[in-house]
Design a protein around this nucleic acid. Structure first.
Lengths: 192, 192
DNA sequence: CCGCTCATGTAACTGGTTACATGATTTA
DNA sequence: TAAATCATGTAACCAGTTACATGAGCGG
């Protein structure tokens, strides 16, 4: 790892989604190691970011190089470990992200692999169709239970907007359950 | 473009999301050119797939090489144009996709750039916060209107499961509106 | 005949991933 | 002391993107 003496230059572009997510997680948990950031990604019920080392470590290095994170080096045997915290510039970057323009693509709905399958359900026979929808429904309900538990935990923990965010997840997954139930009853009644 | 004489081998891995989407679109609109596939991606209110040439043309070539699409060459000046249709193997691949196991990641909720911002709203002052939520709400409502129009169109057009899919989008975006309204009223009442 | 749209395709890049290599600490 | 887990990092890969190059047909 290089970690030069705080060149403090700043990025030549907007931060990526992962960079924003990492910066936010560090802000919430500072001071904070790379490992704990990874664990938070992995603990999340979402599977969007894997928290892979190959993404997280370089991201932290970039954020530190740009002066958005400060890194305190603590020796661990022969190896270095860094404890990260968000700098004033980092706070400013997060605020700029929130106050800045909201791209169209960030407002439009997202890709749903389950939905793309539903589009082509006409290719299946009635029995297969029923099986598919029922599995999807069960699995989504299980997912909803997970998210609900997460919501309760976050709610108890306190932060108002973290709770509001997770509430959004809950709303979304509940809407999915309702949607699948609708399809299930439609498919079960079998009016092909 | 190479287009060898139907080697008919088949992929050495599962199809990617884009490949499934392309195969499905061709099935729905066959016979069908690369260009029209791109147009369908671009016309979609979703912004997940851009329908970029650099993705679509190679994907069609792969699907054809694997024997999932048949390509009829029609001369256009000095240039070749291909009219694609789904083969029996292609149908089988689509059915296998629907009947096959549903990966966990395909069931879990998806990434939402709006939501990740909400997590960090504590960083803003009350006025900035209000502005953010209100813009997000307006833009999402506009998005909902778009999706609703799309839903009505698809519904009129006929296909039962295409309609069901788009109905899922509608449910999701309406849930988002409700969620944002909740936040808006909470933020507006300003109990910081 | 000039510019616009239809149409096909490639090259370079990006933002992540998996897989791997390695070291330190804890626990059976 | 061996195995599991905590922890840091790199290399190779992958699935898409943007930007570009090019050609054909058509309307003014």
């Amino acid at each position: 790892m290089s970690h030069p003496e705080t060149p403090q230059v700043g990025p030549d572009r907007l931060l990526s989604r992962l960079e924003h997510a990492v910066l936010g997680l560090v802000w919430r948990g500072q001071p904070c190691t790379a490992y704990s950031v990874r664990q938070q990604f992995k603990a999340s019920p979402s599977s969007h970011f894997s928290g892979s080392a190959g993404a997280v470590y370089p991201a932290l290095q970039r954020l530190q190089r740009w002066g958005l994170l400060s890194a305190e080096s603590t020796q661990r045997g022969t190896r270095n470990s860094y404890s990260y915290a968000v700098t004033d510039a980092g706070i400013a970057a997060l605020r700029a992200w929130l106050n800045g323009p909201l791209p169209d693509e960030d407002v439009s709905y997202s890709f749903d692999p389950l939905r793309t399958r539903v589009y082509y359900l006409a290719l299946l026979g009635a029995a297969e169709r029923l099986r598919f929808v029922q599995e999807a429904l069960e699995r989504t309900r299980a997912q909803a239970a997970l998210v609900e538990a997460d919501y309760d935990r976050k709610k108890a923990a306190g932060d108002r907007f973290l709770t509001a965010g997770v509430r959004g997840v809950l709303c979304e997954v509940q809407a999915r359950v309702a949607w699948l139930e609708e399809i299930a009853s439609q498919v079960a009644s079998g009016d092909d």
